[in-house]
């Protein structure tokens, strides 16, 4: 399979229909799950799909190491290559990697002004202007609504495709009307798309339950799932 076929056949087309000639759709997405279910794996697959479609991706990691994040990309890419039998895998990898940038922050020192400052450094000096931004490990309990309102504004001005991950806790039963668990139950209106990662019965698969989408590019429901052994996204 070549790169175009791989894009066409990706299960992620159910979530992000391919815009003509790549490109991204403005969207603020949220991916929620309990710890250890596979949020990072899903984010990296969304990022790789975007990279393959010719976009620039900025991957912001809060609390995880730089080296680990790099390894995530390498591992997931290898799995993609195997499952799609991608030709020229090495060349493709070399082509897309310069389009990806990783920024890691310590949990204690992360703040919205800091992220903005970094982004500005990149954009004003014309070093890197992302089309797709994934933020893994954003602490919704500490950073309040205003931070997200600002990020949404950033998304609009920069025309970004943006994804967040959030951890939900077993003990916290608060849920929004739309079914979004804490700590995001009071800010769910700010997101265009919300997906819950839910381990299914006997843990044979993990469902990607799309509980909200206002972009019109996907339908709500369990269209996709995650293979619990490889953490690869597949059609449900």
């Amino acid at each position: 399979m070549n790169r175009d076929d791989m894009i066409k056949n990706s299960p992620l087309r159910l979530l992000n229909p391919d815009m003509n000639g790549g490109g991204v759709q403005q969207r603020m997405g949220l991916l929620m799950a309990r710890a250890g279910v596979g949020k990072t794996a899903v984010l990296v697959q969304i990022a790789l799909d975007s990279l393959l479609r010719g976009n620039k991706v900025l991957h912001v990691t809060i609390g995880q190491s730089f080296a680990k994040t790099k390894i995530w990309y390498e591992d997931i890419f290898k799995d993609l290559v195997n499952s799609f039998q991608l030709e020229n895998a090495y060349e493709v990898f070399n082509e897309i990697m310069p389009q990806r940038m990783i920024m890691t922050f310590n949990v204690s020192s992360f703040s919205r002004p800091k992220l903005e400052e970094r982004l500005n450094d990149l954009i004003y000096q014309n070093i890197f202007r992302p089309n797709c931004l994934v933020i893994d490990g954003f602490d919704f309990e500490i950073l309040g609504r205003q931070a997200l309102v600002d990020l949404r504004e950033l998304m609009e001005t920069m025309d970004l495709h943006m994804w967040f991950s959030a951890v939900s806790h077993r003990k916290d039963n608060r849920v929004s009307e739309a079914g979004v668990p804490a700590p995001c139950h009071e800010i769910d209106d700010l997101f265009d798309t919300i997906i819950l990662l839910k381990p299914e019965s006997e843990e044979k698969s993990i469902a990607l339950d799309i509980i909200k989408d206002t972009t019109g590019s996907t339908a709500p429901g369990k269209l996709l799932s995650l293979d619990p052994s490889t953490l690869m996204i597949k059609k449900a």
């Binding site: 730089f66 994040t69 940038m101 990783i102 920024m103 970094r118 000096q125 014309n126």
Partner: peptide, 18 residues
Amino acid sequence: GGVMGSLNQRRGIIIGTF
């Protein structure tokens, strides 16, 4: 910021920051 700029001017590809 300055460091990234200087590397960028040198045809560098920034892989990331930590």
